[in-house]
């Protein structure tokens, strides 16, 4: 069957060349079924960068000129964040990860969870809400949740705890009713208790001097950020994350990301709800 709507600027060979590069660089896989989707976005990026040909755009992308890799990835990913995004990982947190982390430890030691990057707070607050709603042992432990991001404006917004309707779209109505108060302009504010239960701090993941002061964590949520880094930065960030995990601690990545492609430091753990990565229990590195 012929191409239903061939677009100018991206033929079959160019499509394959692009896909192979994107897979190697980011791990994102585009099959033939996604060709139209890919073509549209490449053409948008060519227009945005003033590239007259695919060849000139591809050269820009390969050399990451003016941060083009980030722009390109953004064109393919859901940039908006919302509560209970990738809920299966939250399920894994309460079903498996915390069970492992609390198996042989004293309740006097706090459970530390890090959301990085946390953007405007939806993820760390989701963790707080999920634990309150879904983890029967939540009252038995001190739990410290920290959200960090390189963008201090995002952190300011996170501290405000005010969200639009779209950010709440995956939350059950009962959860919204319990923890949010409606504001006059169609927005919702998280209750003061929840806002007060999450701390926020600035951090650059590739700077050990910035990650180290945060201490060590039981679980780190680090979703959809390593994909943007070049190889050297990605490895440095992985080492910094490893160093800030307690032995046996877990790291959850975005669904298109694989730590196995980045660093040999971590073990792969396959649970019913998610694949996560663990700092080996017996390992005292760092």
């Amino acid at each position: 069957m012929p191409d239903p709507d061939p677009l100018p600027g991206l033929n079959e060979d160019e499509f394959r060349r692009l896909c192979e590069f994107v897979y190697r660089r980011t791990g994102m896989v585009f099959t033939e079924a996604k060709r139209y989707f890919v073509q549209r976005r490449v053409i948008d990026r060519m227009a945005a960068t003033g590239a007259a040909t695919f060849a000139s755009y591809f050269a820009r992308l390969r050399t990451d000129l003016d941060g083009e890799v980030e722009h390109f990835i953004n064109a393919f990913t859901v940039n908006e964040t919302y509560f209970y995004r990738e809920e299966h990982q939250l399920q894994c947190l309460t079903t498996d990860l915390l069970r492992e982390r609390t198996r042989r430890r004293s309740p006097s030691l706090p459970i530390r969870i890090w959301s990085v990057p946390c953007s405007t707070g939806e993820e760390p607050f989701s963790i707080a809400l999920w634990l309150l709603e879904n983890w029967p042992q939540v009252d038995a432990w001190d739990i410290e949740i920290l959200g960090s991001d390189i963008d201090t404006r995002a952190l300011e917004a996170a501290r405000e705890g005010v969200y639009g309707k779209r950010a709440l779209m995956r939350l059950p109505p009962a959860v919204i009713a319990r923890y949010f108060e409606p504001l006059a302009d169609g927005e919702w504010r998280l209750s003061e208790d929840i806002r007060g239960s999450v701390g926020f701090s600035p951090v650059n993941l590739v700077e050990a001097a910035q990650t180290r002061p945060h201490g060590r964590f039981d679980v780190i949520f680090c979703r959809n950020v390593l994909i943007y880094f070049d190889d050297a930065s990605r490895r440095t960030a992985a080492e910094n994350l490893y160093e800030t995990l307690l032995p046996g601690g877990y790291i959850c990545l975005g669904h298109t990301e694989s730590m196995s492609r980045i660093s040999p430091l971590f073990e792969v753990c396959r649970y019913a709800d998610a694949i996560v990565y663990r700092r080996p229990l017996e390992d005292a590195h760092g």
Binding site: L132, V138, L146, D193, S197, R212, R216
Partner: peptide, 18 residues
């Protein structure tokens, strides 16, 4: 309110470089 608490003050012990 269940025991989800603000990060403690002073902050946790950081990771020291050698």
């Amino acid at each position: 309110m269940p025991l989800i608490r603000k990060p403690p003050s002073p902050p946790p012990t950081g990771v020291d470089p050698p």
